[in-house]
Structures are given as C-alpha cells and as structure tokens.
Design a protein around this nucleic acid. Structure first.
Length: 106
DNA sequence: CAAATGACGCCAG
DNA sequence: ACTGGCGCCATTT
C-alpha cells in the first residue's frame, strides 16, 4: 500500500510542524523548510501548502519568506505581522535575513 | 499525454 | 538591485 499521492496529510503535517516552531521575531525560507523535511528540491511544494488560506490564522505562515527575504505575493498582512514582532526590514518588501533568519536549529 | 503554472532557488548579465 | 533564464516538481488545464 501506500504512496499514490505526494501532497499527503503527512507531508502537510511535516511542513506545518516546522512552521509552528519558528520563534517570534524570526523568519525561515521555503528552501530551509524543504531541507528540514528531507525534500530540498521541493521548496515550491512548501510554498503551495502555505498558500492555502485555510492555514493563515492557525500557523505563523507570515514567518516564511523566500531565500532573499522577499515577502509573499498576495499576502498583504504579512509585513504588518512581522513588524509587530520586531522583525527588521531592509526595504519595503525585504526582511533583513542576516539578522532575522532562524538558524538556531542547526 | 503535453503544456502551462507557481508564496522557490541559483546563476548570469 | 533588478531581470531573465534554467532547473526543480506537483498540480492544473
């Protein structure tokens, strides 16, 4: 048995359990999450899961940005949510990854 | 089944 | 810094 679908509840659970661990004031990239769950090449998959509005208020999805610190398109609340927890920005649409990238799990 | 799409990542210009 | 192209891979058309 097993394995027909790829985007399984189990995969979604793995992704969200990482998101849930991101500390306040820190951010993580899609690629980092993909690597943490053993799917380095599936960063796009992480983005797709997080894009489902179903999860917006239940997990700190706003703490996930792309590798450059760019904010997610179509997620207008993201900047305000990050500013509210003192995440620093380099400009209007880029988080300061040098200071706010979550690396403590390494 | 082929082509297009996307909250990505890396590199070149 | 910004843009475009390519690789990646599941889903959608």
């Amino acid at each position: 048995m097993g394995a027909g679908k790829i985007l399984t509840d189990e995969l979604i659970y793995e992704i969200l359990s990482v998101v849930e661990e991101i500390p306040e004031g820190k951010v993580v990239s899609y690629g980092q999450i993909a690597r943490l769950i053993g799917r380095e090449k599936n960063a796009r998959l992480v983005g797709r899961v997080l894009s489902i509005s179903e999860y917006y208020g239940q997990y700190p999805c706003h703490r996930v940005v792309n590798h450059a610190g760019r904010l997610a398109p179509g997620f207008l609340e993201q900047k305000a949510l990050l500013l509210a927890e003192h995440v620093e920005f380099k400009d209007d649409v880029h988080v300061d990854m040098q200071k706010c990238r979550w690396d403590d799990f390494e």
